[in-house]
């Protein structure tokens, strides 16, 4: 019976619990994004250095992080690091570390892309106007890169929110896990609960990500 399944959500604190579960992954995304932005900006500038050694190091870091599924990175941090170094990382802390490392790589690549996209004549004409290096950077280069970067950074946030859904697979109790608990607890009274619960989680994620990615798209169009 479909109409009975949906009422499971309004039973007790069930809906609230789902939202709390969603907040767990949101919190991880938020912390990871906030850490990734400054680290990514530094990493992006680091990548534009001409030194072959720094180039090689940053290249390997970027490529490894990017080619590995995020879930693999999560496994390495959660299962591997714990054993190798004897640190006992909580699942949530490993998730924050992994997503920050991933976010830094992605953000760094965006920053590098934005920096090298500024044509050389912009530097030349700033120099021709007698600007110093710092002035050129602050007045000419940064404002232009910002317009490219801000929409992309906002987009990174939605990617982060979507990706952090993986943490359920290293045992963090987040929205999918809470959903499963609700379904299991009501297995006999509400046999169709799974449809509604997972449907609602799908909707919740959409409501969390869609406004953010729409904002990014709007800004991108306006600033093109």
């Amino acid at each position: 019976m479909l109409d009975s399944g949906i009422s499971v959500l309004f039973l007790g604190r069930n809906f609230l619990r789902l939202l709390e579960g969603l907040w767990v992954t949101m919190r991880i995304s938020l912390v990871a994004v906030i850490l990734s932005i400054p680290l990514g900006i530094l990493f992006g500038m680091f990548m534009t250095l001409k030194n072959p050694l720094t180039r090689a190091v940053s290249r390997v870091y970027l490529e490894f992080i990017r080619i590995m599924p995020q879930l693999v990175l999560l496994f390495i941090a959660y299962f591997g690091v714990t054993r190798a170094f004897g640190w006992n990382l909580s699942a949530e802390l490993s998730a924050v570390i992994v997503f920050t490392l991933w976010g830094t790589a992605e953000m760094g690549d965006l920053v590098r892309g934005a920096l090298i996209s500024i044509p050389k004549h912009q530097y030349d004409s700033a120099a021709a106007l007698g600007m110093s290096k710092v002035q050129t950077f602050g007045l000419i280069i940064v404002p232009q890169t910002m317009r490219r970067l801000i929409p992309l950074t906002i987009n990174l946030t939605t990617r982060m929110i979507k990706t952090t859904s993986l943490v359920v697979l290293i045992g963090i109790t987040e929205v999918l896990k809470v959903g499963k608990q609700i379904i299991d607890a009501n297995r006999f009274d509400y046999p169709t609960a799974a449809l509604w619960v997972y449907g609602v989680i799908f909707g919740l994620y959409f409501l969390a990500c869609w406004p953010i990615s729409s904002l990014a798209k709007k800004l991108e169009q306006r600033w093109r």
Binding site: T163, L176, P191, T192, I201, F202, Y205
Partner: peptide, 17 residues
Amino acid sequence: NTPLLVQLFFLYFGLPK
């Protein structure tokens, strides 16, 4: 705007209902 894992849970656990 939704994660694959959530899409899969819906398909695999939800749709049979």
